[in-house]
Amino acid sequence: MKTSSTNESDTNNTAPTTYYQFLEISVRELLIEKGVLSAEDIRNAVKEMDSRGPELGAQVVARAWVDPQFKQSLLQDAPSAVKTLGLDIGPVQLLVVENTPEVHNLIVCTLCSCYPRSLLGLPPDWYKSREYRSRAVREPRSVLLEFGTDISDEVEVRVHDSTADLRYLVLPQRPAGTGHLTEDELAALVKRDSMIGVTEVCFSAI
């Protein structure tokens, strides 16, 4: 996941070739020269970005599965609950929505690409694609099927369009047969897509 290119601000594996890559360099250098941002600011922001990934979200989900009190506070006030795990998500207004036998939640941002980056890292390309953004609100069940997720007709599919200042994380259902697993083992089962709501968490005892 992590690329070595973040060790130094100007270490670039491939030489810039496109107009927009030149524009990025120009804007960055001008901002630094004018004292608007420092090279260190930018380096640190990239480092911060690289330190965020779905394993953080998975840690939150696993704790919610084993600790009912944590789960309750997570659903009521996610930013405070997440802080008790030592995770700093900054000023983000996070809302955690719970999958149950009655409701399946799905997250999309139809207007741009809002995403719970502080707990999942940067979004995958498909999340930002025209196809996902257009169809997730209108035919969520077909989109879910394309991810191999078949939600029964009796279950309510609830789509959350992240249109303004809130960010969403799905708390997936804990799969059956996982009673003997430790919290870390549970966290290892929780993949990114299940926290966006396009898949469910699977467990098969071998």
């Binding site: 609100v137 209108r138 035919e139 969520p140 069940r141 007709d153 009796e154 279950v155 309510e156 599919v157 609830r158 789509v159 959350h160 369009d161 992240s162 249109t163 303004a164 200042d165 809130l166």
Partner: peptide, 14 residues
């Protein structure tokens, strides 16, 4: 819309 008539959509609106 095809699907459970209970299916819903939550949107943030000012």
């Amino acid at each position: 819309y095809q699907g459970n008539p209970q299916d819903s959509l939550d949107v943030e609106i000012f």
